[in-house]
């Protein structure tokens, strides 16, 4: 029983990170209808950004304030990168066929990975323990630590903020309008380019925060760390219904739990296959995902 609870907590913490990254995919897909493959690399850059910010705050280690500074630094850095990618690579292709945008996204993702290897080297860096790990609940077979609670709590808070932003602000309304029909929205006077850039900024900032939470849990940062997380988060987004915020959150958590439980109860060798298997099954059974609704494609 305790093992089950332990697995649920572990899966939930892992799933919260997936959910934060998945939100980025889902937001971009919502407004532009394409998979931003480079999102995983923005997540990776966020982790490196966090390392550098923490490096500057040499004396602040261990305090809550430095955690906040590192998180905001990383989020700001990611926002910058996200905006730059959107401006340089995606905006010129706004009216290009979707296939071209997709290929560009793959290209940008590979480019950032390889630039990362060139600049940071392939050897992993260590994410500093901005706040040290402490067990909050500790019995023989069940351990819950402060980082896990922090990860789950922060993710939940960010998702609530996002929900408020999208549902209850003018900006959110504009985002929804763009997502619904980009041309009509532009006729209504909504500055399309600015809204899209804003969407990228939010998605990237979430990735930056996820990267810091991830770095605190797994303090190993390397230029290819985004690849696997990215794929899993994407699967989570599709599972929940791409374009839906609730879907991304639920999908991420389901993904995290499913992985932990499969490894524990079934087999550890097919963990990565699980993500893809889940993806294929959901796409065949219910391509719109759990919460998604897909517009019929027009002729």
């Amino acid at each position: 029983m305790q093992a089950l609870i332990q697995n649920l907590v572990n899966g939930l913490a892992q799933g919260s990170v997936y959910a934060l990254v998945a939100l980025g995919y889902t937001m971009v897909y919502g407004v532009l209808q394409f998979i931003n493959f480079a999102h995983a690399e923005i997540f990776m850059l966020g982790a490196f950004g966090g390392i550098f910010v923490a490096g500057w705050l040499t004396n602040g280690e261990g305090s809550f304030l430095s955690l906040v500074l590192v998180t905001f630094g990383s989020m700001a850095f990611c926002t910058g990168v996200g905006l730059a990618v959107e401006r340089i690579a995606y905006r010129p292709l706004r009216h290009a066929p979707r296939l071209n945008v997709l290929i560009t996204a793959i290209g940008v993702s590979l480019l950032l990975q390889n630039l990362g290897i060139l600049i940071f080297g392939a050897d992993p860096r260590v994410f500093p323990a901005v706040i040290p790990t402490q067990a909050l609940f500790d019995s023989q077979n069940l351990v819950i630590n402060n980082i896990q609670v922090l990860v789950i709590g922060t993710s939940a808070a960010l998702m609530l903020c996002l929900h408020w932003l999208v549902r209850h602000t003018k900006l959110g309304m504009a985002m929804r309008a763009v997502s619904y029909d980009i041309e009509t929205a532009s006729l209504m006077g909504i500055p399309i380019d600015r809204i899209i850039a804003f969407t990228f900024a939010i998605g990237s900032a979430l990735a930056g925060c996820a990267a810091v939470l991830y770095g605190l849990t797994y303090p190993k940062v390397d230029p290819l760390m985004g690849v696997i997380i990215g794929i899993k988060a994407f699967v989570a987004a599709v599972f929940g219904g791409i374009g839906s915020f609730v879907g991304a959150a639920v999908g991420g958590i389901v993904m995290g739990l499913a992985e932990t439980l499969v490894v524990y109860y079934v087999s550890s060798s097919f963990r990565d296959a699980l993500a893809f298997g889940l993806l294929i099954v959901i796409l065949l059974v219910k391509p719109t995902g759990l919460f998604g609704s897909m517009a019929k494609e027009k002729v």
């Binding site: 998979i35 979707r98 997709l102 994407f234 097919f270 296959a273 893809f276 294929i280 796409l283």
Partner: peptide
């Protein structure tokens, strides 16, 4: 699956199949 999917989704599913084959 290509009968039901297109574009990005198909790309991801084929990517997934490729990886599954490799993991097998």
């Amino acid at each position: 699956p290509s009968l039901r999917l297109r574009g990005d989704y198909l790309a991801i599913v084929t990517l997934g199949f490729g990886e599954i084959i490799r993991i097998v």
